[in-house]
């Protein structure tokens, strides 16, 4: 179970973690915590998978690479096998099963230009299935809007 302080950390620490010699001590103040207590709570929240990561979020676009959303129609009888082949690629940043004929949606992230097309081709060869790539033409907003009540 999450207590009020856990929720305050999740809501309040989605960005702006300090770059300072003792950043946990600096960040802990706003939650009325000590340095060690904040580190312990973050370790527990990670352990409980309430947060999937804690640290810098890198932007592949700005590294000269790219993100690309991709989708596939994967037959149920081969689902796990195909998903394992997809996920084996380091560049698959996340992958979700979704309710549609296109039932597997993943994001490729690479810092190297041209690598996205290569991986799309590799996955098609390895699985024998079509990969539909949906590169973004424009991004309207990426918010920090998760608010745990």
């Amino acid at each position: 179970m999450l207590d009020a302080t856990d929720k305050a950390i999740i809501n309040g620490l989605q960005g702006g973690f300090p770059i300072a010699e003792r950043p946990y001590a600096a960040a802990a103040e706003q939650f009325g915590l000590g340095e060690q207590e904040l580190m312990d709570r973050l370790a527990r929240l990670k352990e409980q998978e309430v947060i999937s990561r804690f640290g810098p979020m890198y932007n592949a676009d700005r590294m000269g690479g790219a993100f690309c959303l991709c989708a596939m129609a994967v037959p149920e009888e081969h689902f796990e096998e195909v998903v394992d082949k997809i996920n084996a690629h380091r560049e698959v940043a996340h992958n979700y099963a979704r309710t549609h004929t296109l039932n597997v949606w993943f994001v490729l992230a690479s810092d190297r230009p041209g690598r996205i097309d290569e991986i799309v081709n590799e996955i098609e060869e390895e699985t024998g299935l079509r990969v539909h790539a949906f590169p973004k033409l424009e991004e309207f907003f990426i918010g920090l809007k998760v608010d745990v009540k």
Binding site: I10, L13, Q14, V50, F54, G55, P56, M57, N59, L144
Partner: peptide, 28 residues
């Protein structure tokens, strides 16, 4: 390390530094 991270934040290479909530575990 701090100077380089600051520069990467300014250049937008680091989008942000913080927690990534797991929507599923949070009941969202």
């Amino acid at each position: 390390v701090m100077a380089r991270l600051r520069r990467m934040v300014e250049a937008g290479i680091v989008r942000r530094i913080g927690v990534v909530p797991n929507h599923y575990a949070l009941g969202l």
